[in-house]
């Protein structure tokens, strides 16, 4: 089994009487890009703040790199870079000075500042006060700050929030490269599935403080299939044959509409149809969009 970089067990955070996070079990393996999804107010930021030791969990355990966050906070934070919600920066300082303020705390060579500015392509703007930056540039500076200490784990909370499409694209490309180029594990939160889908390997979907789905993107996609449509030369006879094989389905507009089934079964059906002299024109899978699935999961809170 691969090493888990982040693992939480039965994590709870309660404010007054409102439970912001309930019984959360996160599992993120080394080298993953993990998309942490949920609508606004679902508890993503609360969870991330707990992972960084900014707020105390009410109950439950957090292990990063296999170590307990409570007892080894400094060691863990030394290996972690973070960007929590909107970027924090000192507006009156330049990008270089902002990074220098962090470098003085984390240590490390001065040359690293130029390196991270290069990674987020801010080298040209490095000498300007940050208050004059566009939101996208500030967000990139935030990522540069997170990368400054050569982290093994990058925790990014809504890094593309409020960015225009090209800004989103840039950040996405940046994040996608992290495991490949630098071997960094990434946890990235978002309220948009479409955005995470394009970079994450694994997703966790949280709703009202509870995890409702945690698996690979591929498995999420496989739940998207809602059935098959077959276009054949003699639909009525073909339907009889399909029903004989144990498929459930109906005839609509001269096409067979069958419920979703295993690959082996659809192959068998096609084989039988051909053997019985049917001409098979088309076999198409009907898919719900990922957005639909996401909305269903988030809307109903049911497990898919």
């Amino acid at each position: 089994m691969t090493e888990l970089v982040i693992q939480t067990k039965g994590l709870y955070k309660t404010y007054k009487k409102r439970a912001a996070v309930q019984d959360l079990n996160l599992e993120i393996a080394r080298g993953d890009i993990y998309g942490f999804l949920g609508p606004n107010g679902a508890g993503k930021t609360t969870t991330i703040r707990m992972l960084l030791g900014l707020i105390q969990p009410t109950r439950g355990a957090i292990h990063l790199f296999g170590k307990d966050l409570k007892s080894e906070k400094m060691n863990i934070l030394r290996r972690t870079g973070s960007l929590v919600e909107y970027p924090s920066y000192y507006g009156h300082l330049t990008a270089v000075e902002n990074l220098e303020a962090i470098r003085r705390i984390t240590g490390g060579p001065k040359s690293r500042i130029a390196e991270v500015l290069e990674i987020v392509s801010l080298t040209k703007e490095a000498k300007r006060p940050v208050k004059g930056y566009s939101l996208g540039m500030k967000q990139r500076l935030g990522i540069a700050a997170a990368l400054l200490n050569n982290p093994e784990l990058l925790i990014l909370d809504e890094p593309t929030n409020g960015l225009d499409p090209s800004g989103i694209h840039e950040i996405r490309e940046l994040i996608k490269n992290m495991p490949r180029q630098y071997g960094i594990t990434v946890l990235v939160s978002s309220h948009l599935l479409g955005e995470v889908e394009q970079m994450a390997d694994k997703v966790g979907i949280i709703r009202e403080g509870r995890m409702v789905f945690q698996d690979t993107i591929d498995n999420l996609v496989s739940t998207a299939s809602s059935g098959f449509r077959l276009s054949v030369s003699e639909p009525e006879a073909a339907l009889g044959l399909a029903l004989d094989l144990g498929c459930a389905g109906v005839l609509r507009d001269h096409m067979l509409e069958l419920e979703s089934m295993q690959d082996a079964k659809i192959a068998l059906l096609v084989k039988r149809l051909v053997e019985n002299q049917h001409a098979v024109y088309r076999v198409e899978e009907q898919r719900r969009s990922l957005e639909d699935i996401f909305m269903q999961i988030v809307g109903e809170g049911s497990r898919v």
Partner: peptide
């Protein structure tokens, strides 16, 4: 205020420093 202004606490305190 230098820290409060743009909520820099969350960045500062997530650094490896007590």
């Amino acid at each position: 205020n230098v820290e409060h202004q743009l909520s820099s606490w969350k960045q500062l305190l997530a650094l490896p420093i007590s």
